[in-house]
């Protein structure tokens, strides 16, 4: 018997919008408040809300622990990769000027890639930490 029907239906209604808001914060970070750090935390918050309401096993189906743990170093790798790409194009480390034909576009691309790296690491770390604490069990 489920006594938390309203909670479950309500959560199913708002969960997609939380993820959509995370993507909005990520890609609109150039124009309004937001960016990789906030978007990563909001996306992680969506997974955590799902885990709280539907159980950790259900959450591990939509965000498998192995994927989450892969995301932790992957974001740093994307970030460093953007830096090294700048080096290979003959500029300084993390100088995005060579990424596109003109200055503005190159730096827009650079910021987008770097913010993606931040998003991946922050989201992965927060969810991985949550899983680690939850599956510890009461000793």
């Amino acid at each position: 018997m489920r006594l938390d029907l309203i909670l479950r239906v309500g959560a199913k209604l708002i969960l997609p919008f939380i993820l959509l808001f995370a993507l909005y914060v990520q890609f609109h970070g150039d124009y309004g408040p937001g960016g990789g750090f906030q978007a990563g935390v909001i996306a992680a918050g969506m997974v955590i809300l799902y885990a709280i309401i539907f159980g950790v096993h259900a959450a591990k189906r939509i965000a498998p622990p192995i994927m989450v743990e892969m995301m932790v170093p992957m974001g740093v790798a994307i970030f460093t990769g953007a830096g090294i790409a700048g080096l290979l194009m003959g500029n300084n480390f993390l100088d995005y000027t060579g990424f596109a034909h003109d200055y503005l576009h190159a730096h827009e691309w650079g910021i987008l890639i770097v913010e993606l790296g931040v998003l991946v690491t922050v989201c992965g770390t927060m969810v991985a930490m949550f899983y680690a604490f939850v599956q510890r069990g009461r000793s």
């Binding site: 124009y31 408040p33 960016g35 993390l94 931040v118």
Partner: peptide, 16 residues
Amino acid sequence: MPPNIVTAVLADFRGF
């Protein structure tokens, strides 16, 4: 640059 100066400083000027 992007209008949000905080993002520009965060990811570009002070990317390191």
